[in-house]
Simulated scan of single mutants.
Amino acid sequence: MLFENWKENLEPLINKYKGRKHPLNYNNTYQLLIMVILSAQDSDANINNIAIPLFEKYPNLESVSNSSIDEITPYLIKVRNYQTKTNWIFDLAQLLKTNSNIPTNLTDLIALKGIGRKSANVILREMNQKTEGIIVDLHVIRVAPRIGLTPKYEDGNRIEKQLMQQLPYEIWNEIGMALSFLGR
């Protein structure tokens, strides 16, 4: 690629955004998990608005698992693809039952309905868990090729794989969000 020492060249960008919280307004892992599922192909601002009444009514996975899809749906109708996402969230609550059962590793997170690599990487970063990949969202897909980090791909998983090969492990945790904030 353009630079031999990406770590050194990306350091100012990483330092600028290091530790900055994701734009979803969550208070705990349960809220983050639900909001990440809802935010796929939707805006963080929309999800932040929807989340307030949702979490007032359903403060944890147990409350979701003790409800029904019909009870949850009215809280999610303003979300893009709400029917599918409502089913995912309900199924996830039925499977996990309590917040303490939320996985803390990539493999178990991506095994859940509605959670792909990007979502799992966001959850792991935000919950200060071990980094297992790089967050690649729409912004990273646009920015990474522009600065010469990757060829231009449309597929986030392909870009993530390229970034993981190109960049040292010690910056994986911060570089995805830094690139995302830069792209915003």
Results as ranks from 00 to 15, higher is better:
179 L>R: 00
12 P>D: 11
96 L>G: 00
47 I>Q: 04
142 R>W: 11
73 T>I: 13
37 I>N: 02
121 N>T: 02
152 K>L: 15
62 E>N: 08
29 T>I: 13
15 N>M: 15
121 N>S: 05
9 N>H: 09
152 K>W: 12
168 P>V: 06
78 K>W: 05
110 I>M: 06
172 W>L: 03
47 I>N: 03
56 E>Y: 10
93 A>Y: 01
166 Q>Y: 08
64 V>C: 04
32 L>N: 01
158 R>C: 02
143 V>E: 04
184 R>C: 12
164 M>W: 08
32 L>S: 00
63 S>P: 01
27 N>D: 02
117 R>V: 10
68 S>C: 14
143 V>R: 06
106 L>K: 08
75 Y>F: 14
54 L>K: 03
178 A>G: 06
43 S>R: 15
38 L>Q: 03
178 A>T: 05
39 S>F: 03
60 N>I: 10
50 I>S: 12
131 T>H: 05
102 I>C: 02
167 L>V: 07
10 L>N: 03
144 A>N: 10
145 P>W: 06
180 S>P: 04
80 R>T: 08
155 D>G: 14
37 I>C: 06
161 K>I: 11
167 L>M: 05
88 W>E: 12
65 S>T: 13
137 D>H: 11
184 R>D: 11
122 V>M: 09
8 E>R: 13
178 A>L: 04
53 P>K: 05
129 Q>E: 13
33 L>A: 15
153 Y>V: 07
177 M>V: 02
142 R>S: 09
171 I>W: 00
73 T>M: 13
75 Y>V: 04
75 Y>W: 07
142 R>T: 09
48 N>D: 11
48 N>T: 08
113 K>Y: 00
31 Q>S: 08
168 P>D: 06
168 P>L: 04
44 D>E: 14
83 Q>I: 14
95 L>K: 15
138 L>W: 11
55 F>R: 03
99 N>W: 06
132 E>I: 00
42 D>E: 12
104 T>S: 13
26 Y>H: 05
12 P>N: 10
141 I>K: 13
138 L>P: 03
8 E>W: 10
90 F>G: 13
175 I>T: 04
75 Y>E: 01
134 I>K: 07
73 T>S: 13
83 Q>D: 15
137 D>I: 09
7 K>H: 10
52 I>K: 13
25 N>I: 11
183 G>S: 14
1 M>V: 11
22 H>G: 05
162 Q>C: 10
182 L>K: 12
183 G>M: 12
72 I>N: 00
9 N>Y: 08
136 V>F: 06
140 V>P: 02
95 L>C: 09
104 T>E: 14
154 E>C: 14
67 S>R: 05
73 T>F: 10
40 A>M: 08
17 Y>S: 10
158 R>I: 14
96 L>V: 00
21 K>T: 09
94 Q>L: 12
105 N>R: 09
76 L>D: 03
180 S>N: 09
88 W>M: 12
178 A>I: 04
162 Q>F: 10
83 Q>L: 14
9 N>V: 09
183 G>H: 12
33 L>M: 15
68 S>W: 13
44 D>Q: 11
163 L>D: 01
175 I>F: 00
178 A>R: 05
165 Q>C: 12
115 I>Y: 03
